[in-house]
Design a protein around this nucleic acid. Structure first.
Lengths: 333, 333
DNA sequence: CTGTTAGCGCATTCAC
DNA sequence: GTGAATGCGCTAACAG
């Protein structure tokens, strides 16, 4: 068990330097020597102590995952995808959640906890202030964004504006004119957050169609939020015939609220979401779907490539596709 | 930026040992000295390098989270709860997923990747072979289980048997007799997995009621699995009037399948799940609910207490409650 | 209360 | 191709 490199060296009849080289696949070691060292190491169950290795090399083989939540669909999937991809390349995933959407004054994201612990950072759908991004840069480690990121930084995310256009167009083609929008969070701090961009896209699409853009409510990114938002919306504007929700989870809330008000879907109210949530099928939710697991994987591979000194694209735009189910239908006459 | 303890020592006019003591709140330091050191450290933005600290102390202030998935509701919530609790006590969460439920031969959980990286381990709903548990023990770090764990190990989990009884009793009281069970995974390796215990509870409850226990199908722990299982079930046994699914995600699959077969819920088929998934409300799913976030929190605090040398209970059994909605109703006549 | 010293376990020059 | 020596940055005994 508690064997060190010196034990291996002694048992193999070589120096610790040779053990180090042999085990890490470095050149300048005879095949015979390498094999012998490997055999001894395996027998002793030797594994280099990570902290010692880190101290000596300055690298940790660990990537920090920064996210507001784990329990929301999008985030859980990005994290899972990233962790799998990292493990494939012998890296660890260190998880940090910062619930910046919590009620009350926004608490600053404490980036200092990452210092010295990671070789790179993945920011997962986390709206960051410029100062916070600067703090992360001060770590001196590569930064990759998923789901939302500054325009000039390496970011993996779908074309949020296009998503909104796709959803609105679908509703327009069904004859809807009174189209409401359930956004995620109202006062995001970063102009590049998904919430802000998607809202922008919605406004744009509506304006292009000559429609009003004041039918917007905040759904807080979750099902209960979407439900409350819908009640609030329909109290004020009972003539709305379609709702575009910025996530499937909120769209499900719209469905719940509609049922509570005795509205039939889609006869009285059409609902479309974003994500392609597996459970959307349960209520026949129409959605603009994306492959989130793949985005996590992709982003993880990007950080590793940056660390390896390889060039990476500044922006990866995964495809989306409209999945039409039964929650959207022709506008009532 | 890149300041070391020596820089702080020099700037504060003390030795590195004093800096170390002062910053960590150890005794034998004058308040005045402590304050001065703190001020200097803050100004220089000094943070002790984790790897150096780990190498010297043998502790990492990191807890390993082992889980089959992140994207499933139960696991996402446990992980989120644990991470939050750990961060509150200045610990990090290192995430490891091992998809032991993957198709094909079960791959052994590679515990060696944890060696030297963690001070403790949280096993989240992961069915482990005895040998794998032994491997984890060999890390020489405390082990706490959540959602499933060997009877003699510190485990946070609901009373699975009681859960099954609760669900079955609810259906019995509604007059159901042909009650089917959608389990998670068929061939779990550990006798203490949630799947095995819950199945046991179901058998027990059914037997007590004098009912047959052969109406069991495998739902693979997710919605599509629950759906496929239901079709398979109803093809063979069209007279089933109620289904008890081992998770809400699978229960949703039952709902989808029922709709696909033109069955009304609950008039033709009653469905009950386990978890209290937020989205269950969208389809009016009856469920045996548990507070999973709290379980993650609790488990995290337990590992930290074991590390601190405090005594901990060998078993924590969080409460569950039956949430009756519209997916269960009287058995058809 | 504070400073000096010796490691923690490994990677990495530089010699050979 | 291999070994000896040095240092990564910090903590922990031990002196004082």
């Amino acid at each position: 068990m508690g064997h060190g490199i010196e034990d291996v060296a002694r048992a193999a009849g070589v120096s610790t330097a040779t053990v180090s080289r042999a085990l890490r696949g470095l050149p300048h070691v005879t095949d015979a020597t390498r094999e012998r060292v490997r055999a001894v190491a395996a027998e002793l169950g030797y594994v280099a102590t990570p902290s010692a290795r880190s101290l000596a090399t300055g690298r940790t083989r660990t990537i920090g995952l920064l996210s507001p939540w784990v329990s929301h669909w999008f985030f859980a999937n990005v994290i899972e995808g990233a962790e799998r991809a990292l493990r494939e390349q012998d890296h660890d995933a260190l998880l940090y959640t910062f619930d910046v959407f919590e009620l009350g004054p926004r608490r600053r994201v404490e980036t200092h906890v990452l210092r010295g612990r990671v070789d790179g950072v993945l920011v997962v759908g986390l709206p960051l202030e410029d100062a916070e991004v600067a703090d992360l840069d001060a770590l001196g480690r590569p930064l990759v964004f998923v789901g939302a990121g500054p325009t000039d930084r390496c970011t993996v995310r779908i074309d949020e504006v296009a998503v909104a256009h796709l959803a609105v167009r679908h509703l327009l083609e069904l004859g809807h004119r009174r189209i409401a929008y359930v956004s995620g969070h109202p006062d995001d701090v970063s102009p590049w957050s998904a919430a802000v961009l998607r809202t922008h896209g919605w406004r744009e699409a509506m304006t292009e169609a000559g429609l009003r853009t004041d039918l917007q409510v905040n759904g807080n990114f979750d099902m209960p939020g979407g439900r409350a938002a819908t009640h609030e919306l329909l109290d004020r504007h009972p003539d709305v015939t379609a709702v575009f929700a910025s996530s499937d989870e909120m769209a499900m809330g719209v469905v719940v609220a509609a049922r509570e008000r005795g509205l039939r879907i889609p006869q009285d109210l059409s609902v479309i979401g974003v994500d392609g949530h597996e459970l959307g099928e349960v209520v026949g939710l129409t959605s603009v779907a994306q492959d989130v697991l793949a985005q996590g994987r992709e982003a993880a591979r990007l950080v590793l490539r940056v660390i390896a000194g390889e060039p990476v694209p500044v922006r990866v735009t995964p495809p989306v596709r409209l999945v039409v189910r039964s929650s959207t239908g022709p506008a009532p006459a």
